[in-house]
Computed example of a mutant assay.
Amino acid sequence: MDRVTITEASQVAEARRRAVAAAQAIGFDETAAGRVALVVTELSTNIVKYGVPGEILVGTFEDATGSGVEILALDKGPGFSDLGSALRDGHSTGGSAGEGLGAVRRLSDAFDIASRPGTGTAVLARLSGVRPATADGSAAFGAVTVPLRGETANGDAYAVRERLDGWTAIVADGLGHGPEAAKASQEALSLFHHHRDKPPGAILSAIHAGLPQTRGGAVSVASFDRDAGILTFAGIGNVLGAVVSGAVTKRTVSLAGTAGHAARRIQEFEYPMGQDDVFVLCSDGIATGWSLDAYPGIAAAHPSLVAGLIYRDFARARDDATVLVVRGDAS
């Protein structure tokens, strides 16, 4: 994902430029790219007026709901005491070109927001090049993944394979950061796709066997069987997972080592997981003590918004950072 820090008004134009470039790169026409420009302008202006410092994250998405541009606006400002009023069309977020968050919601094909007084605001907007006639289900997963500041190559990578009976997911964190870390994590993803029909332990074993010519890294693989209500997890290193079930967060066990170089053993662990639960998988660019306790019920939100909140509140400044969120009811 591309990241723009927002601290003053001149950065609104930079956020808009990068978002439009991302849209054009995947084939958006002038009208569709114009919608992206309006949404990013509104969200960036909102941060300037009420939430500095904040961030705009721009990426692309492709899943069962479609494909397009994904935008996250994250700040730690005062938040909204009356979210309903803020979402009304015509309620300006501060003199911007459009009509505030209501306009953002109207222009977006998927929209979600979390805001509490004193904790800031997180807004998600997804836009497709061709607007669907009707909404086609909810997103099964969402993620935030950004490189260390100052780097263009991201040493983290993730993937999700959706199945009729559940899903299989991976997060790989190449050792260190920069291009060589990115090479290791991308090779891990290639091996994941090749062995994706196997159980997590077998996938992880194949990745470990296939990374010796790279730096290696931390890798975790999880698979959810919806009918059995069981999540199976295997990890090497500090890519850590958790099942969030209501107010209870159950952390998964990942064993010490470096995939591709040193792993004394690879072991699967099983955890109960319901269709209303979410699974969260984070690289070590996210503090291990992350929690969603400040946002009761947030697990029901769009998974990209959940990922954005965890990133905003718990990202470390010293490394690439990835948060992957997958829903139990994903199909």
Results as ranks from 00 to 15, higher is better:
147 P>L: 08
152 T>K: 08
154 N>C: 14
155 G>V: 11
155 G>H: 02
157 A>F: 02
157 A>H: 09
157 A>T: 06
161 R>F: 06
163 R>L: 13
164 L>M: 10
166 G>I: 09
168 T>M: 09
171 V>S: 07
172 A>H: 09
172 A>E: 11
174 G>T: 14
176 G>C: 13
176 G>P: 09
177 H>S: 14
178 G>L: 06
178 G>K: 04
180 E>R: 14
182 A>L: 06
184 A>I: 08
184 A>F: 10
186 Q>Y: 01
187 E>C: 07
188 A>S: 10
188 A>L: 09
190 S>A: 14
191 L>C: 04
195 H>R: 02
195 H>E: 10
195 H>M: 01
196 R>T: 15
196 R>V: 15
198 K>E: 15
202 A>G: 01
202 A>T: 13
204 L>R: 04
205 S>F: 02
206 A>Q: 09
206 A>F: 04
209 A>D: 15
209 A>C: 00
210 G>D: 06
212 P>W: 05
214 T>Y: 11
218 A>I: 11
220 S>W: 00
223 S>P: 00
225 D>R: 07
226 R>E: 14
227 D>M: 09
228 A>H: 04
228 A>R: 14
231 L>R: 02
233 F>V: 15
233 F>W: 14
234 A>H: 03
235 G>L: 00
237 G>L: 09
239 V>P: 02
240 L>P: 00
242 A>I: 01
246 G>T: 01
249 T>D: 01
250 K>E: 13
252 T>Y: 02
252 T>R: 01
252 T>Q: 05
